[in-house]
Design a protein around this nucleic acid. Structure first.
Lengths: 197, 197
DNA sequence: ACTCAATTAATGAATACTGACTCAGATTAT
DNA sequence: ATAATCTGAGTCAGTATTCATTAATTGAGT
């Protein structure tokens, strides 16, 4: 079996796991169910993942990588100012999560619980993401568009908190709204509190 | 057995459950462990709670009742203005959670997961709390201290989001900081974005 | 105040069930 | 023919819940 075909099956298992775990929760999902949706036998799962938990870790890694890569692209853009960058990052966050409800459910609900288990791993990736937000705030302070009195690291957490709560709210609401529609209001509130008076 | 003695034992079981679940997670905690800490036999648990899940629901109910009662007291105070009320509510939220780390862990981590199971129940209580925040924002708009353009319900979620993320951050940080110390910065940011220019 | 039968409460070993993981054999690819 | 891959029934460890048994409490009668 070629490396790419093997990789494709691995991804299929991950995709199946995302759907099932989003619907029934991590503990409510059996390995057999994931295998069923992926169209493989139970045992096959273990040829691709060490354990059930390893599947969850892989889901997290794959998604977080996308977030961080894209966010880094925004931060490193020499053209845009801090305010523009923050606006884009807010949009990125809400758009990526808003594009895949199942993945969003896992991020907003399932990972919270299993942070217990994954603690170090997941928090370090999150730290990286928060660091990127903080660097935008720092840039804004340096350029005089944001107040000099705000603490970059604290503010990054606040920004993340707002986005995170918006995502959770969207996930738990039954209505089928587009999350990206809320980018404007979120920017207004956050930038309003940050901007130099 | 008198009603109060029975009630006391019920509370002892709940307290034991909070400690254990905070440390090991809901699924990592066995009923036997809770019984052990509470100093009763395994079977006794079932004389006081219908199931393991019912214990979790009771923990949530008990804590949420305190939050809502206190918050209602703040909202109904005829002396204070909207800005003062919001400041007090932020302080209440951070102080209540900051006073009991184990309970905070359960709120910030465990309930997220089991929202899956408890969905309706827990979200309705949360709705009530969000409604109280929204009513403060509405009052501020009416009195002209907050911008007329902000949406009360949306803003309530934003405020909650910030408090929630601060709490999660505090819970997952190993350091032993006092969460109440962050009331000032949180107020500055949130009120800065809300106040009429 | 003191029985002691009736009632209520508590116990913890046994039950019943679940579901992650294994592995001997079948299938497919080279 | 040989190796690589997959299969799924079976194993096994763990744990929520039950229930026959024991202990504690109550209060009517002395």
């Amino acid at each position: 079996m070629t490396a790419t075909r093997r990789e494709a099956k691995r991804q299929r298992i991950l995709d199946a796991a995302i759907v099932e775990i989003a619907r029934r929760g991590y503990y409510g999902t059996t390995v057999a169910t994931i295998a069923g949706r992926a169209g493989v036998a139970d045992g096959t799962i273990y040829l691709y993942f060490k354990s059930k938990e390893a599947i969850l870790v892989s889901i997290f890694e794959r998604a977080m990588q996308r977030f961080i890569d894209e966010a880094r692209g925004i931060v490193e853009d020499a053209q845009a100012g801090a305010e523009e960058k923050l606006r884009r990052l807010i949009e990125l966050h809400l758009t990526l999560l808003g594009a895949d409800r199942d993945l969003a459910v896992i991020f907003q609900v399932e990972f919270r619980h299993t942070l217990h288990v994954l603690e170090l791993l997941s928090r370090s990736r999150l730290q990286e993401y928060l660091g990127l937000i903080a660097s935008i705030v720092d840039e804004g302070k340096r350029d005089g568009v944001f107040r000099a009195t705000v603490d970059a690291s604290f503010t990054a957490k606040i920004v993340f908190g707002v986005l995170d709560e918006m995502a959770t709210d969207w996930v738990l609401a039954k209505k089928n709204t587009r999350m990206a529609a809320r980018v404007g209001p979120a920017c207004d509130l956050l930038l309003g509190g940050l901007r130099r008076p």
